[in-house]
């Protein structure tokens, strides 16, 4: 089978991540593995034959076997509410992939990397973290409920910085604004490492612009825009 062939995916397990997000472990016969950061194309078919296709990053590490996707529900959306609120174990849809050869991290890249994620933009970064990427991670979230994988990140001892853009947890003394130049500078004044930035378009646009302003070489900045 080639990555471009559609295959049946069966939902093997569902784990709620936050009130608005869930991780689905997929059983995909013939799945031949992926590189951390890649995505799959997903296709859902309604009873009347209507089909919808979307892209979802793979959250699991290549060594984890069965691919996992984490979906954050978009209000009024067509596919993400199904994934988060309707899907049950044993449900099926179609996937193909993996795709994407740029926004990836391979173990051969042993130097430290920086990662900046907003909302569901954390998903491909998590795959890289799980694969062992030596990363410092900056996460922008609306509130505590919006942070994916928080327990696991803490358990793994990942060098994690957080900023809350809407509601802060009780007793929070850290950042509570959107990522800006000053924050990026305080977080990591050294330029040089490769930087991965992923999230909604407006977020990626402004973070990538700020990184260039702070002296990062544009060639070292890899972006993935979800919007």
């Amino acid at each position: 089978m080639r990555p471009t062939d559609w295959r049946k995916a069966t939902v093997e397990r569902i784990r709620p991540e936050t009130p608005r997000a869930a991780t689905l472990t997929l059983n995909v016969p013939g799945w031949s593995g992926h590189r951390a950061g890649q995505h799959v194309d997903v296709r859902l078919t309604a009873d009347d034959g209507y089909q919808a296709q979307r892209r979802y990053s793979i959250a699991s590490a290549p060594a984890d076997g069965a691919p996992q996707i984490t979906v954050v529900e978009v209000d009024g959306g067509e596919v993400s509410p199904w994934m988060v609120s309707v899907a049950r174990e044993e449900d099926t849809f179609e996937v193909r992939g993996p795709f994407g050869g740029w926004f990836v991290w391979d173990p051969a890249h042993t130097e430290p990397v920086l990662m900046i994620g907003g909302g569901s933009g954390l998903v491909p970064l998590m795959s890289m973290v799980r694969a062992g990427a030596p990363a410092r991670l900056l996460v922008s979230a609306r509130d505590r409920d919006d942070v994916l994988y928080l327990d696991e990140l803490e358990k793994r001892g990942v060098d994690l910085a957080l900023t809350y853009t809407r509601r802060m947890p009780l007793g929070w003394t850290g950042w509570n604004r959107r990522v800006d130049r000053e924050m990026l500078w305080k977080w990591q004044p050294r330029v040089g490492p490769r930087v991965y930035v992923c999230g909604p378009t407006a977020f990626v646009e402004s973070v990538a612009d700020d990184l260039v302003f702070l002296g990062h070489d544009p060639a070292n900045i890899r972006t993935e825009r979800f919007g």
């Binding site: 309604a46 009873d47 309707v86 099926t92 179609e94």
Partner: peptide
Amino acid sequence: MSTTRGFFRRRSGDDERLPPGQY
């Protein structure tokens, strides 16, 4: 074609002008 339980169309489309797999 295998269908997905509980999934239905939510977007209205101008199908003639939408290439396959596009929304």
